[in-house]
Design a protein around this nucleic acid. Structure first.
Lengths: 304, 304
DNA sequence: CATGGGTATAGATATTACCTATGACTTCTC
DNA sequence: GAGAAGTCATAGGTAATATCTATACCCATG
């Protein structure tokens, strides 16, 4: 087998491509220009190909160099991932961990589980980011976050998920609403009732519509958060579906709204943890999800 | 950023995992046991994790070690691919090149194009492998071959393709066959005619059936090669569709069979070159396909 | 408890990675 | 155009490290 290049050499040619000059690239990787020069030369010898065109105004990659560059980048990130995965495997859920959470979960879940999480994983530094599902998926793919709490089902390429807990939907309406007289509801009761929902982009909107297969949304109004949503319901703009987790967290306390569960089988959404396929921290993501499930089960809600 | 391991170290831990013992692994990578021992120790220091359980009867990877192993393998093959891609980019279509070809193309195409290919790419060493499409795809995915000539459309995960030329289907039957009286045929003429085809697994069978949307295959007989197929047609067992390339190559010469083209738009299959997605030699595969197309166009068939 | 299979340690040596100093060559500037 | 200011390449010395040999150690097993 022909000799392999060094990761160092790959790092060097990446820097060279990025800075377009031996001297500046050398500076960027903290070596002198002759060192980098020699390293690139040896890399070319190993590969048997000229990778760089040296000119008086800097260096430009040859087509072969571009091909190598692309693969070198891959090798480097894989190697970095290996380090992260190893550290994570050795001491799971320690160090910085960037977790994305969708806006219809974050404000209700986090206060409830963060203290216990910190207790269970004292070495973790959780960085939280609240955003819509699609943007969290982008962040996962671009490695800006390590994992995300989202609502399933949701299917996206390059993303894997692990179910954590089922979040039941509850019907909420003003007291004088026709359906508020019933103790429990069936999804079919909503066929004639245009629902007031969150604005487009919130997965809760889609999941709520899916829950009452025949239902529809009010097209004239939409809320930007669950808090504004309940206020809009209160002012008589319509009825809605709320996740139990938000209700348990006190979302409708002292609002004077009527809240009704659905007949079994209850409708709702599944909350799960998601990570980029192949992520170095997928095991930790699963562990974190399981820990949250545990915490939710042992410490029931402090709601009304 | 924390320090990266060396490719050498990754190679070492892969060998260690494969041999289960420092001494034997060291032998396998041509270093002494203390060298490998020290290297693994340093790798563990870099990753901050114990990767190997040292026992009196050898070494076993810890769970963290297993996680590292898997990624180390990936990094190593990516690095090897980089070398291959660089060499290929520097001097395309030179050195050993393993090409798979399906059985309904190989015997008719290769004699026609191999001499010209050798002339055009004098430094290439073509290793040919004749097999069914599915097995060629497996071989591509497992890196046992670099590219394959197959019939499209065919869709398989991890495989990319590039069209090379269109191979028209011709109708072939014994002289006394009812349809042999027509000068040209429409695909619909075959609705009532159960065709004699190759046995299952040959893509030509599926593509021929697809060509005459309403047609069907004889279920009692099937041929194992185009040569036996024409003999079976000759003995009156039925009619069939043959690729023009095979006819041009003399498949039915002196067989006394009637061969008819279809009305435009002609039916047929597309021949293309396929490679594993991300393969180091995809550019060469495309170049090879284009070269074959060229050769076929400039040097028309020597058939009847 | 000696033996044999295994790994770790110590010390010497060969390799190589890197630095400093300098040279050769372009391109821009006046 | 001559000089200045870039560029990359080369040479030679030094420090770091990769590797080897030799040996110590550890533990199962007969």
């Amino acid at each position: 087998m022909s000799q392999l290049p060094t990761l160092r050499q790959l790092q060097f040619i990446i820097a060279l491509a990025e800075h377009g000059s031996f001297s500046r690239a050398a500076e960027a990787v903290f070596v002198t220009q002759p060192t980098l020069s020699a390293a690139i030369k040896e890399l070319e010898a190993i590969l048997g190909t000229v990778l760089v065109e040296r000119g008086a105004r800097g260096a430009v990659l040859t087509p072969a160099g571009e091909a190598v560059l692309e693969r070198a980048r891959r090798v480097m990130t894989e190697a970095e991932d290996l380090v992260i995965a190893a550290q994570a495997a050795g001491e799971p859920l320690s160090g910085p961990f960037k977790l994305g959470v969708i806006p219809t979960i974050a404000p209700f879940l986090l206060p409830r589980v963060l203290p216990a999480l910190r207790e269970r994983f004292p070495d973790i530094e959780l960085f939280l980011r609240e955003d819509l599902t699609d943007r969290l998926f982008d962040a996962l793919r671009e490695r800006r976050i390590d994992a995300a709490l989202i609502a399933l089902p949701y299917d996206a390429p390059m993303i894997e998920t692990h179910a954590v807990w089922a979040d039941e939907f509850l019907f909420a309406a003003p007291p004088d609403h026709a359906l508020a007289r019933k103790k429990t509801l069936a999804p079919s009761d909503l066929s004639e009732e245009p629902l007031l929902l969150l604005e487009d982009g919130h997965c809760l909107r889609d999941h709520a519509l899916a829950a009452c297969a025949t239902g529809s949304a009010r097209s004239d109004f939409a809320a930007t958060s669950l808090h504004t949503l309940v206020h809009m319901v209160k002012s008589g703009l319509g009825a809605t579906l709320l996740p139990r987790m938000a209700v348990d967290a006190g979302l409708v306390d002292r609002m004077g709204l009527e809240v009704r569960p659905f007949d079994p089988p209850v409708v709702g959404r599944e909350i799960g943890v998601a990570w980029r396929k192949g992520s170095a921290r997928s095991d930790e993501a699963i562990q974190l999800g399981d820990a949250i499930r545990d915490i939710l089960q042992t410490a029931p809600s402090g709601g009304s």
